[in-house]
Design a protein around this nucleic acid. Structure first.
Length: 802
DNA sequence: TTGGTGATGCAC
DNA sequence: TGCATCACCAAA
């Protein structure tokens, strides 16, 4: 039998299966999806068996060296999905297979030098061996001994270079103690024990009562003793001690309050019915659950999942990374108990691996996780849910540039099951599809418990400035914060850190310099003191005064959380503030700890970035402040308005979720901007209409699809030249309907001393496009291999345009 | 991607 | 001529 193997070498020439003979001892074990170690050239590497065949067209096949799995790591479905993913993202098959698995399952390679004879070698070499038989090859390289000497010894058969493939997987073990002899022998032993050996007696007595193996630590704790008492018993073979694998449980030792399904409101009932019937009929369909914040989307998800579980099938629920708050986990663990696995980036590599294996062993039926959880190795998927569907974290922005939504639909098609996309502020793409009838639209327009959306007050910061307030806190916001402090209520203050010092605005009239061709804020380039558009090649000098009102207060913008915290403390000295940003939450568990503190009322104000915009549910929060609503609005991104609207809506949803009603203060320099104005009245529909007009006029999604080439090279001219060629090639090959823009310097014009240029394709339908892109990549293959050569990345449907 | 191979160039 | 470095190519 022959195994067709995808090897762990990401390159153009190896992006196809290699044939290996299956040695007799591995017959029946080697099957599609199993990881194997195979000889490849002079070394040994990891590979994935994708299929078996009777014969090979290749004349001299080598044998599989070793097999790493008993159960296949990848299911047949995931192998196919990987193939699809590699076509869809134009990346190597091996990269796609790796992206579906936990990090620890990637191989670790070691190159070693082995000494084979006892004879003395070259004295310098012997000195490095220092009496050992094996050393890391790196040690040899660092010793500076010439390869000549090595070669000579190798020819003599005295040393050899050895390649090791190691799995990074580590299994956590715990010590277990169990009786090694029969109860009768134990009783005998008990009598033999000297009377002063009280602790030993206690241990033996314990096992006489209950002979089951027991965790060593628990045994010692239970009997209030130490390993010293256990040791003689093990040595005399009365008891035995051995290691047993335990699954790391990130939520171990925690009690989750069981919850039962709520009675659905009429609206929820109407929304869930089509989902349930699709699950029942085993059909594929995509639903958009459009529900205002606090409308009980989660309950609809959970009851849909329940239906899937009742049928004996499994469900995946994706949530954005930052929304995977303990509160969310609690709700799922509370409802589904041990049927749930949780996968997100805050888990350690080992924890992720163990959660993943729970899925693989079919020990759980529900996965709640971030983007990559979409690859959960379930075999009977009955439902996929993507919560906060509009979140950009569902798009992977490196190597295998996939969108979890697309993968979800792909998997759901194979499993004949529905996909539910949920959001209070759906992405325009999704809402447009729902409006066209491609997706089924389900709406929840009312908050639960008859709560109303909090009142939003827009504060015009230009007026604040005119009245002499130069601080970042408006008078109304300051007053309202003080009011809450007096009432012992809590405040959430939100600051966008994105958009730091990049856009230019007039502090007097709010005028923002925009590109005349793109309706996008210009980016300020400090070095040349010029404004540039990041989509087309437009640029202009940084204005001395506002072109609109001639004021001289025009300048670039940006503020960090730390500065805000200091200013706030100065403004309201008695306030107890918790700051949450990348700096304060870097440490493991810090995120959760800070939130718990806030929840327990140990602080009055929670100040933070994006990460506090989602999922928080604290009843005592009655005021939410947005410090700079414009910050995001002026990013060089055609989705800037959409993101602003989404963010303001999400943040507003944090206030007044329970009995106490909430209030929101939004500070802005452009209160008249449609995305800010419409967010303040929670008018999604109107916002959608407005934004769609612009998208249409400027040929952006959902009217057009985008393909973004980013080309970089240490030499600016080279980068630009290659981009120009690519642009021209695409222009030539694509139909007249496509718009090919470029070459344009990237918004991040230089990273790591590489100059970056872009080419953007806007198109409606170009079925041949991938072929042309492949030709480009093939054409530049050689130049891309060089270390300091060209680098070309292609992103189909990019989210990150920088 | 890695490592062996043959070509090339430099110092003696 | 000997040795180091480099570009190239194959990997089952």
């Amino acid at each position: 039998m022959i195994a067709n193997v995808i090897v762990d070498v990401a390159s153009q020439n190896t992006n196809r299966p290699f044939d290996y003979e299956i040695p007799e001892k591995f017959e029946g074990i080697v099957q599609p999806g199993v990881r194997v170690i195979v000889p490849f050239g002079p070394r040994k590497i990891l590979g994935y068996v994708i299929s078996l065949s009777e014969t090979s067209s290749f004349s001299s096949v080598k044998k599989i060296t070793d097999v790493l799995d008993v159960i296949p790591t990848l299911t047949q479905e995931l192998l196919h999905l990987g193939k699809w993913l590699s076509n869809y993202t134009l990346s190597y098959y091996i990269s796609c297979l790796q992206v579906m698995l936990p990090q620890v399952m990637k191989a670790k390679y070691r190159k070693e030098l082995w000494k084979l004879s006892d004879e003395p070698l070259d004295s310098a070499l012997d000195a490095v061996f220092d009496g050992r038989g094996v050393m890391d090859f790196e040690e040899f390289e660092q010793s500076g001994i010439s390869y000549h000497i090595l070669r000579k010894h190798m020819n003599e058969g005295e040393v050899d270079v050895h390649y090791e493939v190691k799995s990074r997987e580590t299994k956590k073990l715990k010590a277990v103690v169990a009786p090694a002899v029969s109860p009768i022998d134990m009783e005998e032993k008990l009598e033999d024990l000297p009377p002063q050996a009280k602790k030993q007696r206690a241990i033996v007595e314990y096992f006489l009562q209950q002979p089951e193996p027991l965790d060593k630590k628990r045994l010692l704790d239970h009997l209030q003793t130490t390993p010293a008492a256990l040791k003689p018993l093990v040595e005399q073979n009365v008891l035995k001690e051995y290691k047993q694998e335990v699954f790391r449980d990130p939520y171990g030792g925690r009690e989750f309050k069981r919850t039962t399904p709520f009675t659905l409101t009429d609206e929820q009932e109407t929304a869930i019915r089509p989902i349930l019937s699709t699950i029942e009929k085993q059909e594929h369909d995509v639903f958009l659950l459009h529900g205002v914040t606090g409308s009980g989307k989660t309950e609809v998800y959970m009851q849909s999942i329940q239906q899937v579980l009742d049928k004996g099938e499994e469900a995946i629920m994706l949530v954005p990374e930052i929304a995977l708050t303990p509160q969310m986990v609690e709700r799922f663990k509370g409802r589904f108990g041990s049927k749930v696995a949780v996968l997100h980036s805050a888990l350690s590599a080992g924890e992720k691996y163990d959660e993943w294996r729970k899925i693989q062993r079919q020990e759980v039926q529900v996965v709640v996780g971030a983007r990559s959880a979409i690859f959960a190795p379930f075999t009977n998927l009955g439902l996929i849910i993507i919560d906060e569907e509009h979140e950009t974290s569902y798009k992977q922005e490196d190597r295998t540039r996939y969108h979890a939504r697309d993968v979800a639909v792909q998997r759901a098609k194979t499993h004949h099951c529905p996909v539910v996309l949920g959001s209070a502020t759906p992405s325009l793409e999704t809402y447009a599809r729902a409006a066209k009838g491609n997706y089924q639209l389900l709406t929840l327009s009312k908050r639960m418990n008859e709560a109303v959306m909090p009142e939003v007050e827009l504060v015009d910061m230009r007026e604040e400035l005119h009245s002499g307030n130069r601080s970042m806190f408006s008078i109304p916001l300051k007053e309202k914060i003080e009011e809450r402090l007096a009432r012992k209520e809590q405040v959430v203050l939100f600051l966008n850190r994105r958009g730091y010092s990049t856009f230019v605005m007039c502090r007097d009239c709010g005028h923002v310099s925009e590109c005349p061709h793109c309706d996008i804020a210009l980016t300020y380039h400090k070095r040349q003191n010029r404004l540039k558009c990041h989509y087309c090649s437009h640029e202009e000098p940084m204005p001395e005064k506002c072109p609109e009102c001639e004021s001289k207060t025009i300048r670039y913008f940006g503020t960090g959380t730390q500065k805000v915290e200091e200013a706030l403390q100065e403004l309201i000295p008695e306030a107890r503030i918790i700051r949450m940003d990348v700096d304060t939450t870097r440490r493991k568990g810090a995120h959760e700890r800070l939130l718990t503190q806030f929840g327990e009322g140990k602080a009055d104000i929670l100040l933070g970035t994006q990460m506090i915009a989602k999922g928080l549910d604290f009843g005592n929060v009655t005021l939410v402040g947005v410090l700079a609503a414009d910050a995001m609005l002026n990013l060089p991104d055609f989705r800037a308005s959409e993101k602003t609207f989404q963010l303001l809506t999400q943040v507003s949803g944090r206030a007044g979720r329970h009995e106490k009603s909430g209030e929101v203060v939004v500070q802005t320099y452009t209160p008249e901007h449609y995305s800010i104005e419409l967010a303040s009245t929670y008018d999604y529909e109107q916002f959608f209409q407005e934004e769609m007009k612009l998208r249409k006029a400027f040929r952006y999604p959902p009217y057009y699809y985008l393909t973004l080439f980013t080309i970089s090279h240490p030499n600016q001219l080279k980068a630009e030249e290659a981009t120009r060629k690519i642009t021209m090639f695409m222009q030539q090959k694509l139909s007249g309907q496509a718009h090919v823009l470029g070459p344009t310097p990237s918004a991040l014009a230089r990273i790591n001393n590489r100059y970056r240029y872009q080419c953007m394709v806007k198109y409606k339908k170009e079925p041949e496009q991938r072929k042309f892109v492949e030709r480009i990549l093939h054409y530049y293959e050689d130049e891309m291999k060089q270390e300091n050569g060209l680098q070309i990345t292609v992103d189909f449907q990019p989210y990150q345009l920088m």
